[in-house]
Structure formats: structure tokens, C-alpha cells
Design a protein around this nucleic acid. Structure first.
Length: 304
DNA sequence: AAGAGAGACAACCGCTGTAGA
DNA sequence: GTCTACAGCGGTTGTCTCTCT
């Protein structure tokens, strides 16, 4: 992995488009307030350096953190004479200067872990980074966007896997959108996941996936577990099972985050028998996977 | 050799959450 | 309850480097 410091000069954007045309003094005041807030307290943004950091700036920041510790980033310009906004300082320290940051290529083990965590957590890069010591969320995000995503998509295309659908609830969804299937990997917002729905092979064909799932929920929103729901599966309905079965070690825990797992297509083959495959082979293997031992897996308190 | 396009990644932006006044 | 400052997050952008034609 390269560690070149590029000489970049960012143009910046009109961050206050919504207020830019406001004619009143009230709006003017509000606009200035918003500007101040977004500038991180700088009264004159012209005095703030932007773009790539110089070695000298890095050293000032390092010295400052050694002296005063992390935090209070907004005070750095005043206390250390560094012409950078607080946000920029924080980012530079966390993503580049912090001593425990691991440099070098991401190993295949790390890559594997990122893929697994992403399928579990979605684009929650800070959580993913938290499980990879020395790696930053920015680094993982970049790595995913430039390399891993394509790799995973290519793999999925090749394997023709069937994604499990999720029954989700999100505090940011209005009530009438609750329960509508969505792809959690495309959202950055936390969702509460209460059930996993496993489409059968039939859903891959001409059937409208979402309407079938909605219908299924309406008819039987609290369906029994996958293991005793064989008939409905055979009819082409999604399978239900409580996601807590997958992650929980005790009843008090409630999974409240992302989950997006995939089942190889052959597990959905009617002749193979979805129930048996899930119950006896894949599910057990996945549950006992070294990467997700139950006692080490998701810190559920992070989601609540 | 030169230009175009893709890849890589540092750094930005806007937004949200939270603590304290 | 409201306001303010700040930290943190994920999405996006801009520029440099590499590779291909």
C-alpha cells in the first residue's frame, strides 16, 4: 500500500446552498452561524491551510497531541499555531499520525475479515475498523470502494448466491415504511433487525420478490423458525427465523444492527432441502466460524 | 513517447449525536 | 427544553500514480 502524500488542493463546496439566497437579516445571521459552525470556529477561512499536510504541520500536530493529548481539536490552531481546522487535525491524527496505525498491505486474513464484517455490519466502517487493530475506517472504506466491493460482487455473480432478506426496523424510517425489505449494505443508518427471511429458489425467477415478502409478512408476520416451516418454503415463500438465533447466546440480547448474509444457491434447491442444509450444515458451520465466535462477535451495546 | 482512463487514497463535506451551559 | 461546541461518521471529491493503447 502506498503512503504517498499527495499535493492536493481542494476546491471546497458551497455548503450553504439552502441559505445562500435568503434575503433577511435573520437569515443572514443564521447563515453566518451555520458557516461558523461548519468552519470549526475559524472566523477567517482564508487563514486555514487546506489540502495535503506538510511534514512541518505533521510535527506540530504530533507535538501538540503529545503535550495535550487527543481531543479539543478546535483549540489546536490557537494553542499550537497550526493553521488547520479542528476536523482536519483530528482526521490527520487518527488516519495517519497516530502511532499504533498499521502500515502496509492489507493481508488476506484482514481482507477476509473485512468482507465478513461488511456483510454483517454494512458500511459501518468505524465498527469494522474497530475489529482490525491498527486499521482506520478511512483506509478500510477506501479499500472496500476501490477493490473489495468489486471482488465481492464478482464472486457473488459467479456463485449466483441468494441473499437473505431482512425484516428491519429503523428509528429513521416512518412507521409506514417499517417492515419493507431493503438492502442494509446500501444504508449507513442503523436498523433493528428482528427477523431474517430466506428466499427460496422460486423468488429468483419471475416472481416479484418484494411483494412476495410483504405478502408473507402480512399473512404470517411472526412465522415459526426455519426448521419447522418446510411447507411454506416449498410453496415459494420466504423462510422465517429469528436472527437472534444466529447471534445470541442468551435471551436478553436483542440484535440491533446490520445483518446481511448469503446462502449459496444450492442450499435453496428444493431437492436439496433448505431446512436440512440450514439446520445441520451451513448454519452450524457459520455459527462456529472462527471469525465469529459467539462470545467475541458483535458488541450489541454499540447498536442500541 | 504521449495521452486516456483506471486505480488509489488523502482529505474534504455535510450530517448526526451528545455533553454541557 | 434550547442552544452551542465538539466529536465522530460515512459519502464524496480531487489529485497523483499506474497501466494500457
Amino acid at each position: 500500500m502506498r503512503t504517498t502524500v499527495y499535493q492536493s488542493h481542494f476546491k471546497g463546496h458551497c455548503a450553504d446552498r439552502d441559505l445562500a439566497d435568503s434575503p433577511t437579516s435573520e437569515h443572514q445571521g443564521k447563515r453566518e452561524l451555520v458557516k461558523m459552525k461548519r468552519k470549526g470556529g475559524y472566523e477567517n477561512q482564508d487563514a486555514v491551510n487546506r489540502g495535503a499536510w506538510s511534514a512541518e504541520e505533521d510535527q506540530i500536530l504530533i507535538n501538540y497531541v503529545h503535550l495535550h493529548g487527543e481531543g479539543k481539536w478546535g483549540q489546536i490552531s490557537r494553542r499550537a499555531g497550526l493553521k488547520r481546522c479542528g476536523k482536519s487535525c483530528r482526521l490527520r491524527w487518527l488516519n495517519y499520525l497516530k502511532p499504533d496505525i498499521k502500515r502496509g498491505n492489507i493481508s488476506s486474513d484482514e481482507e477476509d475479515l473485512i468482507i465478513r464484517l461488511h456483510s454483517l455490519l454494512g458500511n459501518r466502517w468505524s465498527l469494522i475498523a474497530g475489529r482490525l487493530p491498527g486499521r482506520t475506517d478511512n483506509e478500510i472504506k477506501n479499500y472496500w470502494n476501490t477493490y473489495l466491493r468489486k471482488k465481492v460482487e464478482e464472486k457473488h455473480k459467479h456463485n449466483n448466491n441468494i441473499p437473505i432478506e431482512l425484516r428491519i426496523e429503523s428509528p429513521r424510517c416512518s412507521k409506514n415504511t417499517l417492515g419493507i425489505a431493503m438492502d442494509p449494505t446500501k444504508s449507513s443508518h442503523p436498523v433493528r433487525c428482528t427477523e431474517v427471511m430466506m428466499p427460496t429458489r422460486a423468488l429468483n425467477d419471475s416472481v416479484d420478490n418484494k411483494s412476495l415478502i410483504s405478502a408473507s409478512w402480512n399473512q404470517n408476520p411472526f412465522a415459526s423458525t426455519a426448521l419447522d416451516d418446510h411447507d411454506r418454503c416449498a410453496e415459494g415463500f420466504p423462510k422465517h427465523f429469528d436472527i437472534s438465533d444466529l447471534f445470541m447466546t442468551h435471551e436478553d440480547c436483542h440484535f440491533n444492527g446490520y445483518a446481511c448474509v448469503e446462502i449459496p444457491q444450492h442450499f435453496g434447491d428444493e431437492s436439496n432441502g433448505l431446512n436440512g442444509a440450514i439446520g445441520e450444515t451451513w448454519y452450524d458451520n457459520w455459527k462456529n466460524d472462527d471469525y465469529f465466535p459467539l462470545e467475541y462477535d458483535v458488541d450489541f451495546s454499540l447498536f442500541s
